[in-house]
């Protein structure tokens, strides 16, 4: 047996799942960020009736394992409407990332110094301008580093989607193992593909963190 050729073939086959893995990460991170904004706004409301549903959403979504969510959505929602594995995974991962990112945004909003809002208010800015022009940009800056770290966690979380049949890196690795490829080699190759994405992402998140620390010196 030619081990080198086999490993090369494994890289080729498993690599075809890379696009789907990246797609799941990017789409659910972006859609999750958008969805996280209203959730975070509700979460920081002073009105209990507005705050409570957001808190419940975040706790419930984060309190159930990703695997279980994907199974619930794929089989549950899938029994109502016809749902392919990939859209089911995207819905689940978007939901989950929106809950985590909403908590990051909330922490960002709450960590903007109170003096900022007061200074904006004292200038006669409307409540909306106080928030969108003064608090929100700083909250995003504060929320950026933890959110970039979350992107790495999310990337790894997408590996679970193979369970419902999404054709990602893990899906192809398992397929090759089923066809007789050595399991350790197949999953080492899979791991290598995750590293190809996660290492630059981690590097980027550290870079962003550093940049923001330089820029935002809140007195």
């Amino acid at each position: 047996m030619n081990v080198e050729a086999d490993t090369g073939a494994l890289f080729q086959v498993i690599g075809t799942g890379l696009v789907v893995t990246i797609l799941m990460t990017v789409v659910s991170f972006c859609a999750g960020s958008v969805l996280a904004v209203p959730v975070a706004l509700m979460r920081t409301s002073r009105v209990w009736l507005v705050r409570a549903p957001a808190t419940a959403f975040i706790d419930i979504v984060r309190g159930i394992p990703t695997l279980v969510w994907l199974l619930i959505i794929f089989y549950g929602l899938g029994s109502v409407v016809s749902l392919d594995p990939l859209p089911a995974a995207l819905i689940g991962l978007t939901l989950i990332s929106s809950a985590y990112l909403a908590e990051n945004f909330r922490a960002g909003i709450e960590n903007v110094h109170v003096g900022q809002k007061e200074a904006a208010a004292a200038l006669g800015l409307s409540t909306a301008h106080q928030f969108w022009r003064v608090v929100a940009p700083q909250a995003v800056n504060i929320a950026m580093p933890p959110s970039a770290s979350y992107a790495v966690a999310l990337l790894k979380d997408t590996a679970i989607a193979a369970i419902i049949g999404v054709t990602d890196i893990i899906f192809f690795a398992q397929q090759e193992v089923a066809r007789g490829a050595p399991a350790v080699t197949a999953f080492l190759v899979a791991g290598a593909f995750y590293l190809i994405v996660s290492v630059p992402l981690s590097y980027f998140s550290r870079f962003v963190d550093h940049k923001i620390r330089q820029k935002v010196v809140v007195v």
């Binding site: 003096g115 900022q116 007061e118 200074a119 800056n141 935002v216 007195v219």
Partner: peptide, 20 residues
């Protein structure tokens, strides 16, 4: 409220400039 605050300026002990 807005009209009052536009007629009255305030300077804080800690400046509170907008860092962004």
């Amino acid at each position: 409220l807005l009209s009052l605050r536009r007629r009255v300026g305030m300077v804080f002990q800690t400046f509170n400039l907008f860092p962004h």
